[in-house]
Simulated assay, not measured.
Amino acid sequence: MVEIVRSSDLVLVGFLQSLLENANIPVLVADNHMSALEGMIGAFPRRILVPEDHAAQACRLIVDAGLEAELRHG
């Protein structure tokens, strides 16, 4: 699994998860429980992970959605 997005924005994370799942890309949203423990103040961002063999397609979808700035590079 590779991390493609890290964000504290719950709406963005939900949107990206839905976008990727609708394209049949397996998605794991990591750190959901840690975020709940810290009281939802945004101190611990959630990470969107996809299988390495789906990463390029997932990134293309995110770019096409106009959210290129959210991608983790490097």
Results as ranks from 00 to 15, higher is better:
residue 36 A to I: 09
residue 13 V to N: 01
residue 74 G to M: 02
residue 56 A to V: 13
residue 26 P to V: 02
residue 71 L to T: 11
residue 26 P to D: 08
residue 43 A to E: 06
residue 11 V to Y: 05
residue 17 Q to R: 13
residue 58 A to F: 04
residue 20 L to S: 15
residue 18 S to P: 11
residue 5 V to P: 13
residue 58 A to L: 00
residue 23 A to L: 02
residue 27 V to W: 00
residue 55 A to S: 15
residue 13 V to G: 03
residue 21 E to A: 04
residue 49 L to G: 11
residue 8 S to G: 11
residue 63 V to G: 01
residue 66 G to Y: 12
residue 2 V to D: 12
residue 36 A to D: 12
residue 1 M to C: 05
residue 9 D to Y: 03
residue 6 R to C: 12
residue 48 I to D: 09
residue 60 R to M: 14
residue 56 A to D: 15
residue 46 R to C: 13
residue 12 L to C: 13
residue 15 F to V: 14
residue 21 E to I: 03
residue 14 G to F: 05
residue 62 I to S: 11
residue 59 C to H: 04
residue 15 F to W: 05
residue 56 A to F: 07
residue 33 H to G: 11
residue 25 I to W: 01
residue 70 E to V: 09
residue 31 D to G: 06
residue 65 A to L: 02
residue 67 L to Y: 08
residue 9 D to M: 03
residue 38 E to V: 13
residue 44 F to D: 06
residue 7 S to H: 01
residue 32 N to R: 12
residue 66 G to D: 13
residue 61 L to G: 15
residue 41 I to F: 11
residue 1 M to A: 07
residue 8 S to H: 05
residue 7 S to N: 06
residue 30 A to G: 11
residue 67 L to N: 04
residue 24 N to D: 15
residue 45 P to T: 02
residue 10 L to C: 04
residue 23 A to M: 02
residue 37 L to D: 10
residue 63 V to L: 09
residue 61 L to S: 14
residue 19 L to D: 03
residue 59 C to E: 14
residue 17 Q to C: 06
residue 71 L to Y: 09
residue 54 H to S: 14
residue 50 V to Q: 09
residue 41 I to Y: 08
residue 73 H to S: 14
residue 52 E to H: 03
residue 59 C to Q: 11
residue 54 H to N: 15
residue 32 N to V: 15
residue 59 C to Y: 03
residue 23 A to F: 03
residue 5 V to K: 02
residue 61 L to C: 10
residue 15 F to S: 12
residue 38 E to M: 12
residue 64 D to G: 03
residue 1 M to K: 02
residue 25 I to Q: 02
residue 58 A to E: 03
residue 20 L to P: 10
residue 49 L to R: 15
residue 64 D to S: 09
residue 7 S to M: 07
residue 45 P to Q: 00
residue 55 A to K: 10
residue 14 G to E: 12
residue 5 V to D: 06
residue 66 G to M: 08
residue 45 P to Y: 04
residue 28 L to Q: 10
residue 31 D to W: 06
residue 59 C to N: 10
residue 28 L to K: 10
residue 33 H to S: 13
residue 19 L to M: 06
residue 57 Q to K: 14
residue 60 R to T: 14
residue 17 Q to I: 05
residue 41 I to H: 05
residue 31 D to M: 08
residue 1 M to S: 10
residue 52 E to R: 04
residue 8 S to C: 07
residue 41 I to R: 11
residue 53 D to K: 02
